[in-house]
């Protein structure tokens, strides 16, 4: 049976959840892995809770569905905690990583009874410091790769730089690269 890692990214419209799911997929493709990455499409509104998925495997796989039972959940926006069931469907023993500034105990209190490894990083602070804006999507993926080495950080940074260069914001690529590295180092 093919081993697949299913990642769900929970964020809010406008925070780049969709872009991050795609860039994570592109980084995996660079590494010769197979992916299926796409957002949950519906009525798109800035600020509304959104989900995006990246399915990664070293071997070819057939699944063509949204991710209902993720191995990894990445929460980009701390305000989702307590409002959206971000742990929904998480496989037991899975990983949750949150953009969270508070104490770990407080974070864990949101996931009572959930069998998961819980990690946090203050991605908002890092994003504001390094990028100058509260766009913590790629920052969160930087942190995620420390706890779940789905792809190499350098490859994710590479596709992120390419993405920003393509849309004419090469400097944002550099800023994101620094922020991702920082989040990678700081994640708890």
């Amino acid at each position: 049976m093919v081993e697949i890692k299913d990642v769900r990214i929970n964020g809010r419209g406008g925070q780049g959840a969709v872009t991050s799911s795609r860039l994570l997929g592109e980084a995996a493709i660079i590494e010769n892995q197979y992916v299926h990455a796409f957002p949950n499409f519906g009525p798109e509104r800035a600020g509304a809770p959104v989900t995006a998925f990246t399915r990664i495997s070293k071997e070819k796989f057939f699944e063509k569905t949204e991710v209902y039972f993720p191995d990894v959940v990445c929460v980009i926006d701390p305000s989702l905690l307590g409002k959206v069931d971000v742990a929904s469907g998480l496989k037991s023993g899975g990983t949750i990583i949150c953009n969270y500034a508070g104490e770990m105990d407080k974070l864990k209190s949101y996931f009572k009874g959930v069998d998961a490894k819980i990690h946090k990083v203050d991605a908002t602070k890092i994003a504001i410091a390094e990028i100058g804006k509260n766009i913590p999507n790629m920052v969160m993926l930087g942190a995620l790769l420390k706890v779940e080495p789905l792809v190499k950080l350098e490859n994710l940074i590479e596709v992120t730089r390419q993405y920003f260069t393509k849309i004419g914001k090469a400097s944002a690529g550099d800023q994101n690269a620094r922020a991702m590295q920082k989040a990678y180092d700081e994640v708890q």
Binding site: V35, H36, F38, F41, K64
Partner: peptide, 12 residues
């Protein structure tokens, strides 16, 4: 090709 799950999904 089916909408979204193929048209909008990143694949290799």
């Amino acid at each position: 090709i089916e909408g979204f799950i193929v048209t909008h999904a990143l694949e290799r």
